[in-house]
């Protein structure tokens, strides 16, 4: 087995580390369950899992405050869980049931929560980027100090509308944190095969947008960068780009045969850089939690996920009247 990267030394409190641990584990267990339900045919269509990338959204949500908004691509389950949406409602949307966040009419890729200011869930690659800038535009127009966390992948980073959004966000000093979640594969095409420069955080330089490269497998590094980004935006200095390098363990979607990379490559990341193991090591080394405590947390999370899965399978399908509702207000 390859050498595991040493857990970083940190002054972060045990309480905070535990919080990160729980949040990341929640995402992983939820996604594992979703994968299982997909395999059983309970979830249909496309289903894009976030396993391996948990530190990104958990670290950034730790830098957010009440009233901030967030939106992302179709790989969106984790973002919803991390901003406090109910796992039951998310899972029931995956199964297309009445209890889902969109009452079964959106599906895995199209979910929203006005309450949590989660603005989707976007199925068109990069469409969320100008929309995220628009949410920031509304914050500025309304005179708040809230920011918009606009997540997109390394694949989306090559779309033209990203640069249209960068230009306007910088020109108009919009409070938007552009988070490039670089999981290194745009579906089956590696970053090297699709991007003339692999340094995605530099993509805003031509627009005078401040940025930094972030280790997306280290939740504390992500949070620290998030805090800097958010402070920049709240101070009225305009947008900020975080080029976050991460890795997805599963395929692009459930129907991905993953022939474009080796099993060894995936296994190496799991063994050496797993973001959840990393926090667990910090917890153990810092004596912030005993093995028994961690087991109890694991058990509790499994219970929540299991309940969500039960709910998602027992919640009825939407009433046939729902076909014609919510088209217009």
């Amino acid at each position: 087995m390859a050498a595991k990267k040493q857990a970083r030394k940190t002054n972060t409190s045990g309480e905070e580390l535990l919080e990160h641990y729980k949040n990341m584990l929640m995402i992983r267990r939820f996604e594992e369950k979703a994968g299982q339900l997909y395999g059983m045919g309970v979830i249909g269509g496309f289903c894009h899992l976030y396993i391996g990338q948990e530190a990104v959204v958990v670290g950034l949500e730790a830098a957010a405050k009440e009233g901030d908004s967030r939106l992302t691509s179709y790989r969106d389950h984790a973002h919803m869980l991390a901003c406090g949406m109910d796992p039951k409602g998310v899972m029931a949307e995956l199964t297309g049931r009445e209890g889902g966040y969109s009452r079964g009419k959106g599906g895995s890729m199209h979910m929203f929560s006005s309450e949590k200011k989660f603005y989707g869930g976007h199925g068109i690659v990069a469409a969320q980027v100008p929309i995220g800038a628009g949410l920031a535009f509304a914050e500025k127009y309304n005179g708040t100090d809230n920011v918009s966390f606009t997540y997109f992948g390394d694949g989306a980073a090559n779309q033209g509308q990203v640069y249209e959004a960068f230009n306007m966000a910088s020109l108009w000093k919009l409070p938007v944190v552009f988070v490039i979640e670089n999981n290194q594969y745009a579906m089956g095409t590696s970053l090297q095969r699709a991007s003339s420069s692999p340094e995605l955080h530099t993509r805003g330089e031509a627009f005078m947008i401040e940025s930094e490269a972030v280790d997306g497998m280290d939740v504390l590094a992500v949070k620290e960068a998030g805090v800097r980004a958010v402070a920049h935006c709240r101070a009225g200095k305009g947008p900020y780009i975080l080029g976050v390098k991460t890795y997805r363990y599963r395929g692009h979607s459930m129907s991905d045969p993953a022939k474009y990379r080796t099993r060894e490559e995936v296994q190496k990341m799991k063994d050496e850089r797993d973001p959840i193991d990393h926090v667990r090591d910090m917890l153990e080394q810092g004596k912030h939690a005993t093995t028994d405590q961690l087991k109890a947390i694991d058990k509790e999370i499994k219970k929540v996920v299991s309940k969500a899965a039960d709910f998602a399978q027992t919640s009825p399908e939407p009433s046939i009247d729902e076909l014609y509702t919510d088209i217009l207000r």
Binding site: Y119, P130, G134, S148, E164
Partner: peptide, 17 residues
């Protein structure tokens, strides 16, 4: 930048404007 500002305006509408 039609693609961009249309998306931006849609976001502003989602945001309550």
């Amino acid at each position: 930048t039609e693609h961009g500002f249309t998306g931006l305006a849609v976001g502003a509408a989602f945001g309550g404007l």
